[in-house]
């Protein structure tokens, strides 16, 4: 069922926004091929009559009381920021154009 190529690893790493070196791409392609082979057996028993479980204990519509609580201060929220200006997060340009 599986066969993870170098190209596939590069494509998925780009989706996940992780820069990889060519050497890492080689190693991860080899590792992931073995791992995916080992775990693909789940499809053997996952027949259409079995419902999916996303959560260990059933829960619906969890609400807390609608009471205001103090949020972080602006200073606290910015305390770990790599860069800030005028009380805001300072980020690189979002779009690639000039």
């Amino acid at each position: 069922m599986s066969s993870i190529s170098r190209d596939e690893v590069s494509r998925v790493a780009a989706l996940a926004r992780i820069d990889l070196t060519p050497d890492q791409v080689d190693r991860f392609a080899a590792d992931l091929d073995v791992i995916v082979d080992a775990i693909a057996q789940v499809s053997e028993v996952a027949t259409s009559d079995v419902p999916a479980t996303s959560h260990p204990l059933p829960l619906t519509n969890v609400m807390r009381a609608d009471e205001p609580v103090a949020p972080l201060t602006q200073e606290q929220a910015l305390s770990g920021a790599p860069a800030q200006e005028d009380g805001r997060f300072l980020v690189p340009q979002i779009l690639g154009e000039e």
């Binding site: 998925v12 990889l20 791992i35 995916v36 028993v45 996952a46 027949t47 479980t53």
Partner: peptide, 28 residues
């Protein structure tokens, strides 16, 4: 990195049902 790439792969179009969907059934 290995696990993020594996997870992104398992959730990506074309593989979701075979991998993530099947795994959730196994959980049941």
């Amino acid at each position: 990195k290995r696990r993020i790439i594996l997870g992104t792969y398992a959730l990506s179009a074309g593989y979701y049902d075979a991998y993530y969907g099947s795994a959730q059934k196994v959980r049941t």
